[in-house]
């Protein structure tokens, strides 16, 4: 018997964990997005009003991890690898196969990594979850990330920024800039006219 919240339209026979807070106007396509979820903080995932998470989205959130999705955010198939905090501002677009990782989950030192891999096989279910420092990711409001983008630990993406498809973001992105490339660099800045358009 299933206990806990289910989604009436779900294809996957899973439940939404108790410490996931979803606004009643938000849409979560499937509980399959939570098969790797194991956060133990009071609110491990928060999804604000008018936001939607579609198939392909995976909340791989560790015991201390927290994903905060504000209002009117489009999460179109994103892999959250989160042991600290990933914060997404209002009106942001996240395209398919975007990876937002606030941790590497392994030590950088090869021999320390070896020890972790030996431990990983002993866990049930198997899992790599070394205690390495995680650095929060923050994405400002009205940002737009193209498909296949990877955002590395510790990165802040400013308000209104645009990240081109397949970019790998290794450093902070200033507000109202367009960045692209691997690693991503600033391609141009939005003009004052663009920034103020329609305001």
């Amino acid at each position: 018997m299933r206990t806990g919240r289910t989604l009436s339209w779900d294809w996957y026979p899973g439940t939404i964990p108790a410490n996931v807070r979803i606004d009643e106007s938000a849409y979560v396509e499937t509980s399959f997005s939570f098969v790797l979820y194991r956060s133990e903080v009071p609110v491990g995932v928060q999804i604000g009003c008018g936001s939607a998470t579609y198939s392909g989205t995976m909340f791989d959130v560790g015991p201390h991890g927290r994903v905060l999705i504000a209002d009117y955010v489009l999460v179109n198939g994103v892999r959250f690898i989160c042991d600290a905090e990933v914060e997404i501002g209002d009106y942001t677009f996240l395209s398919w196969n975007v990876v937002l990782m606030d941790t590497y989950r392994v030590p950088l030192d090869p021999f320390a990594r070896r020890r972790e891999l030996k431990r990983a096989v002993g866990r049930h279910p198997r899992r790599i979850e070394a205690q390495v420092p995680a650095q929060p990711i923050r994405i400002g409001r009205a940002a737009w990330l193209g498909f296949d983008v990877c955002v590395l630990p510790g990165v802040t993406i400013g308000e209104g920024a645009i990240v081109g498809a397949r970019s790998v973001v290794a450093g902070d992105v200033p507000p109202y800039t367009v960045v692209a490339g691997n690693p991503a660099r600033v391609v141009r800045r939005l003009s004052t006219e663009e920034i103020n358009y329609g305001r």
Partner: peptide, 9 residues
């Protein structure tokens, strides 16, 4: 070779 880590994507 041994001990290589390759990140997502």
């Amino acid at each position: 070779e041994d001990d290589v880590w390759i990140g997502p994507s």
